[in-house]
Design a protein around this nucleic acid. Sequence first.
DNA 1: ACGCGTTGAGAACGTGCGTTCTCCAATGAT
DNA 2: ATCATTGGAGAACGCACGTTCTCAACGCGT
Lengths: 188, 188
Amino acid sequence: MPAPLTEERNRLDRAALLDAAERLFYERGVQAVGMDEVRAVSALPLKRIYRFFPGKEDLVVAVLRRRDQRWRESLAAFVELVPDPRERVLAVFDWLADWFAEPGFRGCAWINAHGELGSSSEAVLAEVRSHKRAFREQLAEWVGATGAPVAEQVFLLVEGAIVTAGISGDPEPARHARAAAAALLGMP
Amino acid sequence: MPAPLTEERNRLDRAALLDAAERLFYERGVQAVGMDEVRAVSALPLKRIYRFFPGKEDLVVAVLRRRDQRWRESLAAFVELVPDPRERVLAVFDWLADWFAEPGFRGCAWINAHGELGSSSEAVLAEVRSHKRAFREQLAEWVGATGAPVAEQVFLLVEGAIVTAGISGDPEPARHARAAAAALLGMP
DNA sequence: ACGCGTTGAGAACGTGCGTTCTCCAATGAT
DNA sequence: ATCATTGGAGAACGCACGTTCTCAACGCGT
């Protein structure tokens, strides 16, 4: 019964591949990273990489999709510890502040991918829009629970904060966006 | 005295080159456009292009710099027609709404360039930061004139609206951001 | 122990990039 | 008219990419 062993190894290697690709793509951009570098960092034969994903575009999409899961789950796990609806919305910005302060933070992976590939890869564009839609709905539920009809506005603050922190390299936008969200929620 | 004629032709050709490059880079991304395509669209010999700009990176920076001038001047000309300070700030979002609705709108050229080249080109990164700083200061003056200390928050709303409109292809974020700005300015 | 199908490691391939070089026509001074 | 110099048009170069191919080593059923 080597079959289960093979499957287990597949799972691990696939994860290692996505780890390597995600790190490289996020740090340096998709087009600036060659498949050979992905191979070197993942320590997987090129042949096996192309068995997992038939082309680079598929790898990019898979990276974004897995990151979407992790990113939104991590955010949800953090903010849902906060019981009060309005404080819960503000906790989103506390989570952002922690994220912005992480070493190697370089803005939103989906926005970056959109700028780089949004016009040339239909699949990447769809994945970016899917992530943004999912996050927007997630956020809209939390904001909706406060009773204030400002979900879209809070979403724009989050997006602005991520982009600005990514470009400036400064986590400060999280605090300003938090203050703005508090005002919109009627918390003086 | 062919010198003045030559200079005039240089000015025109340089403008045609920047026009071609700006259109191509914005529509399809910088890395997706080859210098040969810039040559074809600008109808200039490659040799002359490389006389104007020693490398593609210099061309990219020049495109961003000229666009920054045009973009901020156009915005200022629009909003400074409005005398009332608070209405003037809201006019920024009306200008954004018009921009978002233009055919071929594909988000913020500087944010896109940052996602694509921010980690590999120091010169592009500096140009992007310079544009964002200049715009932020411009906006801070207009917001400052209202007396409300919310310049940074309004800036984040603008950035969020641009990014979101660029990804979704929908100009609606301008209206939501406008409503949020009005609330922050204390306009019920 | 022994074939035999599968895998790993990396060379090879075709393509397209940014950049430079070649060559010839046009121009302007003598 | 001639000749030196410039500038245009595009071929050529070197390189790096995504992808595919080669071939030796290995594992497993018999």
